[in-house]
Design a protein around this nucleic acid. Sequence first.
DNA 1: TATGAATGAGGCTTCATTCAT
DNA 2: AATGAATGAAGCCTCATTCAT
Lengths: 223, 223, 223, 223
Amino acid sequence: MSKKSFKELASSNKTETNMTERQINIISAAIEIFSEKGYEATTTAEIARKANVAEGTIFRYYKTKKDLLLAIPAYLIDMSISQVLLDGFNDIFNNKYENFEEFLREVIKNRKNFAYENMTILKVLFQEIPFHPELRRQITDGVILPTSDKVIKIIDKFKERGQIIDMPSTSIINLIISSIFGYFFLRYIVMLELKWDEDKEVDYLVQYIMNGISKNKTMSNEG
Amino acid sequence: MSKKSFKELASSNKTETNMTERQINIISAAIEIFSEKGYEATTTAEIARKANVAEGTIFRYYKTKKDLLLAIPAYLIDMSISQVLLDGFNDIFNNKYENFEEFLREVIKNRKNFAYENMTILKVLFQEIPFHPELRRQITDGVILPTSDKVIKIIDKFKERGQIIDMPSTSIINLIISSIFGYFFLRYIVMLELKWDEDKEVDYLVQYIMNGISKNKTMSNEG
Amino acid sequence: MSKKSFKELASSNKTETNMTERQINIISAAIEIFSEKGYEATTTAEIARKANVAEGTIFRYYKTKKDLLLAIPAYLIDMSISQVLLDGFNDIFNNKYENFEEFLREVIKNRKNFAYENMTILKVLFQEIPFHPELRRQITDGVILPTSDKVIKIIDKFKERGQIIDMPSTSIINLIISSIFGYFFLRYIVMLELKWDEDKEVDYLVQYIMNGISKNKTMSNEG
Amino acid sequence: MSKKSFKELASSNKTETNMTERQINIISAAIEIFSEKGYEATTTAEIARKANVAEGTIFRYYKTKKDLLLAIPAYLIDMSISQVLLDGFNDIFNNKYENFEEFLREVIKNRKNFAYENMTILKVLFQEIPFHPELRRQITDGVILPTSDKVIKIIDKFKERGQIIDMPSTSIINLIISSIFGYFFLRYIVMLELKWDEDKEVDYLVQYIMNGISKNKTMSNEG
DNA sequence: TATGAATGAGGCTTCATTCAT
DNA sequence: AATGAATGAAGCCTCATTCAT
């Protein structure tokens, strides 16, 4: 993932946001360093350096260092990164997949691409969630719940088609999310140094989830 | 989980460890505050206050604040908490379950109890893993790998009995761990405020995992 | 010696140095307190107070307290104090004294003025030399050796004229320096409280050194 | 110089002092570390370790760390180290040297041996003199002045014989001491790393002092 | 008497934030 | 609006000294 991904994404979307280029530089720099060292261990001096602004300039845009952190979810949404995500789901939703596995595979691929490109920002958010209730609220309300709503509808659709086991949709989502999130955490945080056959493991993951939630046993590995 | 769980556990095991009571007070206090505010945001003064010792006393036992963090995995092992875990697995392993689901349910119950009691310590460890390679090393080498070895054998055993799908045991473990870890993360970190029917959701989790890895479809929900 | 001598000297030379006024305040304050209490017994808070800056400001200019100490020789040179010294020797060298005693008297007078004005800085340097190899290096390489080179030439010149005994120039210099340094140490460090007829004693010192190194006995005492 | 010189000397004199062996261990250790790192930079823990006693034990014998420093001059005298010195002078004094140079050479040799063996203790004392008036008083009153008195008599004796120039004896002593002290300082503190032909330089020193103070030019180098 | 664990004041240093330019 | 020097509160850690054993 390029170090400029945020800035580039942001720049390309600049017409749709009211952030100045400076502001984007700052928050991009912050996100990157937060993800490397954690919020508390990051100094505003470091952010300023990476953002190519003076230290004082940061505080013109973000009153405090914490505001910089709390601005990240809004930034995520504002920048249409979450739009990309939702669009992806929309596509999936609209591309009436006959088969839930197809859908799931698409989701994971989507998620995977998304995660690859935005590992940094996600890492920061999940890292800091436990210590900042305001942040938690923003993420659940602004990102997770809206997404869940969409997904629940999809799940329900496939349920109606008899492809998915009889279990509350919320629980199903939680289980799927847990698996996916747990997978990425294990892969990119804990087992960082291990060799890992990405494609194969993702196939296993899909197969596992599919088995986990589908009504009829599928031994499919023929992705 | 009571605030005294570490101390109590440690005290009850004091014969098996060479830590003084003071040392246990200190690391217990540290773990608790680390888990509440994160390692960086925790001050040694705070730890001292909670441990009821002078600030200087901390440094008699742990040269630096970071040493205090790095001592946690050893503490986990030293206190036989991980022994409890492994013993659990040993019991499971020895109580030759005919059925993999029985085994899994036992594991999750075990894990759940374990996690309940040690959520705090686990939270700290997973929280700080990304920023401290030494910590990562200690956890993978001292906790994860040894446990994995045991579990792989169990998995293999059930594989031979034809109860588990044909997938590398390591991958199976990763998937199971991912699910369980993801579940706890979602439950206790992200969705902290949400109401949640614990028992039901755990049942769903078991069912989901069982479906995910077992050869024959089980629709068991009769928890 | 006035408490402001460094600052004043520095200010008067400000065009020739790239130190800010604040930086000069800080190092001046440091030198004075170091000389009074010794490097280790001096606190950065004290330095800040005397320099009329915040404690943190010190560390903008000198990364550590030790850097502050190690900056002193450079400061000595940078401030052209040593230039004054060398210039003095240059003058002496150029004012072709026919007589070595004249030269010596000039040197000592020069040294004496120099020492009077910079007793403080010299005291610090010689005080801390034993404990800081880096400091020793800087002083020998930056101050002593360059000066010695100049003086050796002068000594050689007078040797050729047959005014000085046959002894390696280096040894002669060492002996002279020893006498002068020892004199000042005894006078200003050990015998601090004693009454002392300065002029008379300096005359004795000159006479003593002259006798010590000159080829022909001089009983001059006509200072 | 052996690391045990103080302790050994002290032990051999134990009948003449009221110090316990422990006390001697402590002050010996203190002196050695003070001389290596300076008084302020030395910790009582370090002293205790080197003295092979518990940290608390130090404070049984010396109420404070400073008391330990202030005890050094008394220790010097108490241990008859200064007696050795004076005895040396006594011998010299009694061995009616006809020639001042002989006397001087004896003194320097004596001093040199003395300094070799007690460099450590002297270093500490001279190092800390500037910062501790009490220490200065003790050294001047207890060591320097009594010694001076003896030496003055000797000087006077040689003056009467017409071997020494007409200069106040105090000044003569100061000059000689300055030269000798300056020599050792240059040699053992500043030029620590330089190669140095000890014997030759001492010869030069003697010759220099002799020339400096004797009435008749001596070009003697034939020591 | 000796010990060494415990103390807590105080040292050095960092860093978010302010403000004059 | 942007800068970056200055601030000073607060953090980590050290160490002389005390005191219960």
